[in-house]
């Protein structure tokens, strides 16, 4: 668990933004929305798994059931 995760998420965000801009300029707005939704899903799955790890470690350390 180190900083590379944050860089990956930031990179995904930037790529999605750029691709959406390009698609919007070449007036393919439907593809742009699909790309942004896909980017959002990827980032959400990564952060949800991290939240799961956090709750797991808290459960092991503090014994919270």
């Amino acid at each position: 668990m180190d900083i590379s995760v944050i860089f990956k998420l930031a990179a995904i965000g930037i790529i999605v933004t750029i691709v959406c801009q390009i698609l919007k300029k070449s007036d393919r707005d439907d593809v742009a929305t699909v790309v942004s939704i896909v980017g959002l899903v990827i980032v959400l799955t990564v952060s949800v798994t991290m939240i799961g790890d956090l709750f797991e470690t808290v459960k092991t350390i503090f014994g919270v059931y």
């Binding site: 995760v5 944050i6 995904i12 965000g13 930037i14 999605v16 980017g39 959002l40 990564v46 952060s47």
Partner: peptide
């Protein structure tokens, strides 16, 4: 960085940083 263009992604990044 991502606040103005993609606010929902910036929330996920802050959540991930907080978790780390």
């Amino acid at each position: 960085l991502l606040k103005d263009s993609r606010p929902e992604l910036s929330f996920c990044i802050s959540v991930a940083g907080g978790i780390i």
